[in-house]
Nucleic acid binder design. Structure first.
Length: 700
DNA sequence: GAGCACTGC
């Protein structure tokens, strides 16, 4: 600790913080910024008037850094030094230094917008630009104006965007603290390889044959490529002459690997053995593998992006940014000098790579964030004028407003409704929050809580989905319930109910190939949601089991209706002649229900006329993931509402003149609203659909 | 008939 670089800068840091409300700290890896900044300010009296809060983008980081600082100060974790993450608050009245995830700080600011208990807020790892960090940056900008006399804000960032953050905060000072990394030699390829899989293979073998011991970390884009490379590498290493080089262990590392497989990278290799770790960007920030000396960087990453005009997510392989490339290279220099093989030419890095990763806020649906900001009730709050470090497009903001309007979170003037206020309290996507509120009205909250909790954990429920190991959940022989034909939400409900009947038996999860950790997480989330609903609904609600009926007899009507109201912004109509769907409320997309869905066709092989969907994502094709059958007469009022949407009004535009605040939004594009996706003749189509529906019913 | 990177309240 004594030789951490940052400690030589203590005087300079304290002096700068004393004189400025905001300071940007450029702290390279190993500088000690995460553990030392808080301690320095604590030593210098900044905890006399409040506590020091340090945000982290990840839970594990918040916990491990807090633990470390408590150790260094010789105090019990949870006393002077503590942490707060979802489901776990280890702080007390004695806590001076509090580590927390940025999501938790956002929640705190909902109940206490001035964050008055804090004298210092340190936004750590701000260069990662998570959605939450970006919103916090905007809030901090307001907060330092309001609390100029008694709040200090420190933002740690990367070399390449420190300037930009400083500009955002009125050109506040930037302090650079060197890191403690060993030098990493960067080696570029002459050109982009035609196949980066083959190029990685070749680079890995070259290292293995020519270079002295030291592990190799290879960055790939996804599970498929990782598995391919692992098997190719295994073949090639085996064919090398016995004794000609070190032994080799080859390990895959990605998010959908079960935890016990992930931790294999933390056990040190046997002597005379080189490890090859073939990883996604999980090894860029989330997991640190010791012993890495060589890095092979493909220069690509798989990134999720949202298209606000279609409401569709896609998962694309894109070029990484310079910050990411440097982060990857740095992984080679943690224990001794290393080498980084970049499978792209230096000219590409210099001229073509973006300096920083496109922030998440420009790649996501903003419905949740906009609702959050609206619920803060900031006096000068106008969502379209909120100061973002990198503003999202106005199209994206308007999309968010449109969605919030359809689910009754805001009114036609863009003002938050009483429903919207409650929704913002719930740690869920707006559609699910709305579903819970509606379920509370229809007496099926008990079930809706389960569905919302299951969907919050959905991706962690199933074990790795690799081709070899997959046991299919939905069409499986594992006799999981099948949603009674109504779709995936209902299936998720039935799965949890069955587990509930076994009294949460761990063995049952294993028998049914469900991740135990995922199911336990669902239980936690469900409990949390239920507590929040009890608190805000003031006793009027039904969280007890009276939403349960005898199985087999129910059509989940109330629950499906609640889902329909909640997912009014994610509605699709079946095409007339086949089982494709068309999305409604967005520029219409022809999409299909994901083949893993349990939604069942009727006797004629037709899927339901209308479904709501949890997610629309283009992988090999555009797919609706997690769908639920809904009834036509619930859909019609929604379609009417869609038709009436006036985005100008929603964003506070057209009617401002009437209210005498003309010109307030002059910078807004006054574009003609065209809600594509609702054909003018939709009424006749609905009529036709109903006829078909009735005809089918009569036939039965 | 497909297969999705990573976080978080």
């Amino acid at each position: 600790m004594a030789n951490l670089p940052i400690l030589q800068f203590e005087e300079q840091i304290v002096e700068t913080v004393d004189r400025n409300p905001v300071v940007v700290i450029i702290g390279e890896t190993g500088s000690g910024k995460s553990t030392q900044l808080s301690q320095i300010l604590h030593r210098r009296g900044y905890t006399k008037s409040g506590i020091i809060g340090v945000t982290q983008p990840r839970r594990v980081a918040a916990v491990s850094v807090a633990r470390r600082v408590a150790q260094e100060l010789g105090v019990h974790l949870g006393d002077e030094v503590g942490y707060a993450i979802r489901f776990e608050d280890r702080t007390s009245e004695r806590t001076h230094i509090k580590y927390l995830t940025d999501g938790v700080l956002l929640r705190e600011s909902l109940s206490n917008p001035e964050l008055s208990q804090y004298s210092v807020i340190i936004l750590d790892e701000a260069h990662e630009r998570s959605l939450n960090t970006d919103i916090l940056l905007g809030l901090m900008k307001r907060l330092v104006r309001m609390r100029a006399s008694n709040l200090k804000v420190l933002i740690t960032s990367a070399t390449l965007d420190g300037e930009k953050v400083s500009n955002f905060f009125s050109n506040c000072p930037i302090l650079s603290v060197p890191g403690k990394l060993y030098p990493v030699e960067i080696l570029y390829s002459n050109e982009r390889p035609t196949s980066y899989l083959e190029a990685s293979l070749k680079a890995a073998l070259d290292i293995h044959i020519r270079e002295p011991e030291g592990d190799v970390l290879i960055f790939m884009t996804g599970q498929d490529d990782i598995e391919k490379l692992v098997s190719k590498l295994e073949d090639r290493v085996q064919s090398l002459e016995e004794g000609s080089c070190l032994d080799a262990i080859i390990l895959p590392l990605h998010g959908s690997l079960p935890p016990e497989m992930q931790v294999r990278v933390f056990s040190p290799p046997p002597p005379n053995c080189r490890r090859f770790i073939v990883a996604t960007n999980i090894a860029e920030t989330s997991l640190t593998v010791d012993g890495v000396v060589y890095v092979i960087d493909s220069g690509y990453v798989k990134q999720r992006q949202y298209n606000p005009s279609t409401g569709m997510y896609s998962l694309d392989v894109v070029q990484i940014s310079k910050v990411q490339a440097n982060q990857r290279a740095g992984r080679a220099g943690r224990t001794r000098p290393g080498k980084c093989y970049r499978l792209y030419p230096s000219i590409l890095y210099n001229d073509d790579f973006l300096d920083v990763t496109v922030p998440e806020i420009q790649r996501s649906s903003l419905a949740g964030s906009v609702l959050y900001l609206k619920s803060l009730d900031l006096s000068d709050m106008d969502i379209l004028k909120f100061e973002f470090l990198d503003p999202p497009s106005s199209e994206s903001l308007e999309d968010a407003l449109k969605q919030l309007y359809l689910i009754d979170a805001i009114d036609e003037n863009g003002l938050i409704t009483s429903i919207g206020r409650v929704m913002a309290e719930l740690p869920l996507e707006p559609s699910l929050s709305r579903t819970l509120m509606e379920a509370n009205e229809c007496g099926c909250l008990f079930q809706a809580l389960t569905v919302a909790a299951m969907l919050s954990a959905e991706t962690t429920l199933l074990p790795g989905r690799s081709k070899s190991t997959e046991k299919k959940r939905k069409h499986s022989h594992l006799d999981l319930p099948d949603g009674s034909g109504w779709g995936d939400h209902i299936q998720l409900l039935q799965i949890f109910e069955e587990w509930d009947r076994t009294n949460y038996d761990i063995g049952w999860c294993k028998d049914h190939n469900l991740q135990v950790r995922g199911m336990l997480f669902v239980k936690d989330v469900r409990k949390q949601l239920s507590q929040i609903m009890q608190k805000i609904a003031k006793g009027s609600l039904d969280v007890r089991a009276n939403g349960r009926w005898n199985e087999g007899e129910q059509d989940y009507r109330n629950l499906r209706k609640a889902l329909c109201i909640g997912y009014a912004n994610q509605l699709a109509e079946r095409m007339v002649h086949h089982n494709g769907y068309r999305t409604l409320g967005f520029k219409p997309q022809v999409v299909q229900v994901h083949p893993s869905s349990v939604l069942k066709p009727d006797d004629e092989g037709k899927l339901p006329e209308y479904v709501v969907y949890h997610e629309l994502i283009a992988t090999s094709r555009p797919y609706l993931r997690n769908v639920c059958a809904v009834e036509i007469h619930w859909v019609m009022p929604i379609l009417n509402k869609v038709k009436k949407i006036n985005v100008n009004k929603l964003s506070g535009g057209t009617d401002l003149a009437v209210e005498g605040t003309e010109g307030n939004l002059s910078d807004l594009p006054k574009k003609e609203v065209n809600i594509a996706g609702v054909p003018d003749d939709h009424k006749s189509r609905i009529q036709a659909a109903r006829d078909r529906f009735l005809a089918r019913k009569a036939k039965k």
